[in-house]
Every structure is written in structure tokens, then in C-alpha cells.
């Protein structure tokens, strides 16, 4: 993992003029400023739809699913479920990427793996393979190469063991998947049970965390405002596949920054009463 460059002010306020770039002076596969990333393209690159803001040279953009790209996709794009959100840029030139003025960082993977929230991943080199994580709403990148991810505020790296707020989590590298952690105290007693069933009262909003253990790194953004989720599609219903056959709108979908952190709220069809329903054999 390489650490992202330190954000700097776009240009100094005194005297000298603003920095201008042309096709030669644009950085090669590096940040132009904390919010824009320049890619030197010679071949192909995967990017999320609509994230190109400008380019020099001869570049074409084709939707994933295009016939001519079948071979490339078969090798590197193993997540066909959300293919309509992705585009392949092909050609030669320099391309500037940006996403709603969010912070962008590039990361180098060296025979590694990194799992990232689907809405945060912006672009990646075709030497990496993209797969859908078994954790709903996350994507996993495998192999060697560079990718670009967006975050709301600069990214911080944490070493496990660590517990993180679900809304601040951007992704994790080289470490086992997170588990849910609920503060024990919160679940205790009659009041705890009532809270759990009704979601009423007493919650500080921080009772639920993601816990990471093992060796690796956890990536956090410096705000709790989630990036808009990208649908990762529907997994086929199959025994043993988490979330299989159900709409992929887990804890992170549809509750943008709403502080919705209570358990058992998202059982489809039963809503809040999921636990109760199971107890009574419904």
C-alpha cells in the first residue's frame, strides 16, 4: 500500500499565478489536486460511468457489455452484476477523473486484495480483477495494479484490532472481513430488549460498530456522510450465499448518514419485528 499524497492548497495565494497543465505536464497516474486524478492511458482502463471530466488524446469510452471487450472483461471484470455502471476507456492520452469534488486517492496493490464500498471505487487498471465481495455492497480488487477510490474527506489508515463506525468505513486491505459488534450493555435487560424490538429511546447512535481483527489495514473516511451507493446487482439465490436472491440493500443502502444503527431492522417483509417473528415461528 502506498500512502496517498498529502493534500495541499490548490495554489498559493501570493504573487505567482495558478498552475496550468497541458497534455505533457499533467501528472502521470497521480493526483492533480486532492480532488482530481490524472491517468496516462495507453491501452485500457476501467472507470465508473461519468467520472471522466476531461482528456487529451484519442480515447473512446465503451459500456461494459460491448462485444469487442468480451475477452478483456472475461479476464478482469468478474462482477457482471453491476456491469452497467462501468465503462472501459481505451486509447492513448491523458485523462482527468473526478467525482463530485470528493477526495480522490490512488492505491497500489501488489499481489494483494482490497475490499471497498461499491460507491467509493472510481477506476482501476485492467491488471486488477474486480469481484463482488460476499459482503453486500462491497467490491473486492485482486492482483497487482493501481486503483482510484473516492472518499468524503481524506482517508485514514488504521491497523486492526479496531472497531469502526459503519458510516466511516471505506474499505479494508489484506485482513479478514469485519464482524458486527454491538455493545453488550445496550442489549441487556427488559429495556434493552424493548429498544431492540422497537428502536425507541436510549440509543447514542454508536452502539453498533464493525470490528476488524487480524493483520492488514482498514481505510476510514473522515466524515460519516456516505457516498451514494452504487447498486452491485442481485446475487443468485443459492444455498449458502449471503444475501442471495434478496435485494442488495443492507444496512448501508437507503439510510444515508441517517445514523440507522439498530439491529434487526432490515429483515425483508418483517421490518422491525424480524426477531420477534422468528421467536414466534412466523
Amino acid at each position: 500500500m502506498s500512502y496517498p499524497p498529502q493534500p495541499t492548497l490548490p495554489w498559493s495565494t501570493a504573487g505567482q499565478g495558478p498552475v496550468t497543465y497541458d497534455a505533457y505536464s499533467l501528472p502521470v497516474n497521480d493526483n492533480v489536486n486532492p480532488y482530481a486524478f490524472s491517468v496516462e492511458l495507453n491501452g485500457s482502463y476501467f472507470l465508473q460511468k461519468g467520472k471522466m471530466v476531461a482528456y487529451y488524446g484519442d480515447i473512446s469510452f465503451q459500456g461494459v457489455g460491448h462485444g469487442a471487450l468480451d475477452r478483456l472483461l472475461g479476464q478482469q471484470f468478474n462482477s457482471p452484476l453491476h456491469a452497467s455502471d462501468w465503462v472501459v476507456a481505451q486509447g492513448r492520452g491523458k485523462m482527468v477523473l473526478a467525482d463530485r469534488a470528493f477526495d480522490l486517492n490512488s492505491y497500489d496493490l501488489d499481489q494483494g486484495n482490497l475490499t471497498v464500498r461499491s460507491g467509493n471505487l472510481l477506476a482501476f487498471e485492467p491488471t486488477l480483477a474486480l469481484k463482488q465481495s460476499i459482503i453486500p455492497g462491497f467490491l473486492t480488487l485482486l492482483g497487482t495494479g493501481k486503483f482510484v477510490a473516492a472518499s468524503n474527506g481524506p482517508v485514514h489508515f488504521m491497523e486492526p484490532p479496531v472497531r469502526v463506525d459503519p458510516q466511516a468505513l471505506v474499505g479494508w486491505a489484506d485482513c479478514p472481513a469485519p464482524c458486527h459488534h454491538y455493545d453488550h450493555h445496550y442489549m441487556q435487560g427488559v429495556l434493552g430488549g424493548l429498544r431492540r424490538l422497537t428502536g425507541l429511546g436510549g440509543a447514542s447512535g454508536e452502539e453498533h460498530q464493525f470490528e476488524f481483527v487480524g493483520a492488514g489495514q482498514v481505510l476510514l473516511q473522515s466524515s460519516e456522510a456516505l457516498m451514494p451507493e452504487r447498486s452491485v446487482g442481485q446475487v443468485d439465490a443459492e444455498p449458502g450465499v449471503p444475501g442471495g436472491g434478496l435485494p442488495q440493500q443492507g444496512y448501508q443502502g437507503g439510510h444515508q448518514g441517517g445514523g440507522q444503527q439498530l439491529p434487526n431492522l432490515q429483515v425483508p417483509g418483517l421490518g422491525n419485528l424480524g426477531d420477534l417473528g422468528r421467536r414466534f415461528g412466523l
Partner: peptide, 13 residues
């Protein structure tokens, strides 16, 4: 919206 990137356009570019 976000600091602007200034890109130079010249002949042939």
C-alpha cells in the same frame, strides 16, 4: 465546485 484544474489547449493538442 472543488478547485478547478486549468488545462492548456494548443495547436495539435
Amino acid at each position: 465546485n472543488g478547485p478547478a484544474v486549468i488545462l492548456r489547449v494548443s495547436q495539435g493538442m
